[in-house]
């Protein structure tokens, strides 16, 4: 099963999804570990594919994503409906693939733990086992 996106910045990747509410990198993400607090649970996004509506919070977000990249704790990719310049800059600086403008239906099917593949040439995200 696949869902179209408006664009992909960065290369093709495949990984395990972490579905989350909009994260504010400063405060929600710990760059030393790549851990994120989702509700009361601590989840690692290191090497994962983060799925969220959008990013939120201050412009420092770019710097936090950059810090994740430098420490090797960054996610492989981020998939969002809406990308703002703070997120785009952070993904470039942190070497994180960004898929933006994903179809809304994607959020109904994807779950934390789903296997997700990002295909930049076809501009789509794929749920591998569905």
């Amino acid at each position: 099963m696949f869902f179209m996106v408006k664009g992909v910045l960065g290369g093709d990747v495949e990984g395990e999804a972490v579905v989350t509410k909009p994260l504010s990198p400063l405060g929600d993400i710990d760059p030393r570990t790549g851990n994120v607090r989702v509700n009361s649970e601590v989840v690692s996004i290191k090497g994962k594919i983060v799925i969220m509506e959008r990013m939120k919070g201050s412009t420092v977000g770019s710097y936090v994503l950059y810090a994740l990249g430098r420490r090797g704790t960054a996610p492989k990719a981020i998939v969002v409906s809406y990308a703002d310049p703070v997120l785009v800059a952070g993904c470039v600086l942190g070497n994180i693939t960004l898929a933006y403008g994903v179809e809304r239906a994607f959020f109904r099917y994807v779950r934390t733990g789903s296997r997700v593949r990002i295909n930049s040439s076809l501009k789509r995200v794929e749920l591998v086992d569905v």
Partner: peptide
Amino acid sequence: SGISYFSIGDYGLELLEE
């Protein structure tokens, strides 16, 4: 903009240092 230590913190400083 964003050159106050209170705004960009250690991670902003880290990028500037690089």
